[in-house]
Design a protein around this nucleic acid. Structure first.
Lengths: 228, 228
DNA sequence: ACCTGAACACCGTTCAAGT
DNA sequence: ACCTGAACACCGTTCAAGT
């Protein structure tokens, strides 16, 4: 047999980082609501109570997970800032880079809106974004309004309310037909969009919708800046 | 003693409506995460399992609660439609009326974004809103984009990410001072807004921010409609 | 001093035993 | 047939007993 690490140190020591890493992996796979302390400990080959040496409680674990994802966002954003001189494309690119990170951690947005404490990495990200607005000549007031108007979109995600991106299966179509009488407008809209669809992605593309809304807001804000 | 309802029928019978009503009351007071089946049953003077005669499980109870709130919204909206002929003020008024309802059920937004099933009252509300856009001459495509761009704001709420409406207490101010070096932009923004504040509400007013963002979006959409 | 198993105080829900 | 208590399979976390 090949010489590996000696048996006594085979089980790599439990660190806060390792706890965070597998917690995030588990959340990526099964969602955050399926993440509980006991199975997490088991996956780490450790007794449940051992986790409490590295995180005070589950709440702090969740905060740390969010912070780690925002750390990824900050790293991704720093790679993207090859500095176009125009402020609007810069902000746009930064937000879309952030969005890319959230696409691989779909549980993170839900966690972020439910949590009230702002972690350091979030503060860092927002500080950078505020800096871009101020550098672009936005007043402090307008920058503040912009942050609220963008809402979670400033961080790079939206909480889609109801999933309308799924392909229309037989059951849904039948239900739609029954709804036609009671809800004529929504039925017309769905029918019209399905008909016009030029992709096979279903009848709406999250990326397109995100960019549409983002540009609508950034254009509107730019007009307000120019006017002031 | 005064003749009241006879003792045998004193305890009014448990109905689905009564379950919903006190469930919503409890959520209004303590938040939805503090709502559990056992205490809910106790408040209703009933054994926990009795609830399961009226709701299949807790998930269905939560869906029904959301539907009830959206019912309130639809009712409020119907009272507001004293029909201005212009589409934009009409949509604006409708959304602000919806928002008013959510202000007294602060747990509802969080529940709505976490749930994937669209209840009848939601469909009804969205159908009405889509109707307004279509009547205003919006194309089906633009209406669909509008719905996505407005997001939860179309329903009358935003999930505020981090609460910055609190008054700056001593601890927060001290922390802010320590942050000034690391996060100059955000510090400048907070300082600037606190200084300019013309209200005692703290340094931002949710209602004002909501209307600002709503108008920004509706104005932008109106421009797109005019151009097409 | 450190680690850990059992225990505590909860959950939502099943199910069999009572009426 | 209907109602319901006890029980089941989980939670997060405390704590005292082991080393």
């Amino acid at each position: 047999m090949v010489a590996t690490t000696p048996p006594s140190t085979r089980r790599e020591p439990l660190t806060r980082d390792r706890v965070l890493r597998v917690a995030i992996d588990r959340a990526d796979e099964g969602g955050v609501e399926a993440l509980s302390m006991r199975p997490l400990a088991q996956e780490l080959g450790v007794v449940p109570m051992a986790l409490y040496k590295h995180v005070a409680n589950k709440d702090q674990l969740l905060d740390a997970m969010v912070d780690a994802v925002m750390g990824e966002v900050n790293e991704a954003v720093s790679r993207v800032d090859a500095g176009s001189p125009a402020w609007q494309p810069t902000i746009r690119a930064r937000i879309l880079a952030a969005r890319n990170v959230f696409l691989s951690h779909p549980w993170a947005p839900g966690l972020m809106v439910s949590r009230t404490t702002m972690t350091p990495a979030v503060v860092q990200y927002v500080d950078g974004l505020v800096g871009l607005f101020l550098d672009a000549g936005y007043s402090i007031d307008l920058t503040h309004h912009a942050l609220h108007a963008l809402g979670s979109r400033a961080l790079g995600f939206t909480q889609e309310l109801y999933d309308d991106s799924g392909e229309a299966d037989a059951q849904a179509e039948q239900m739609l037909e029954q709804m036609a009488a009671a809800y004529p407008n929504i039925t017309a809209m769905v029918a019209g969009i399905v008909h016009d669809a030029d992709t096979t992605l279903g009848w709406c593309d999250d990326q397109v919708e995100f960019e549409f809304a983002l540009d609508l807001l950034l254009d509107g804000l730019a007009a307000l800046r120019a006017r002031s």
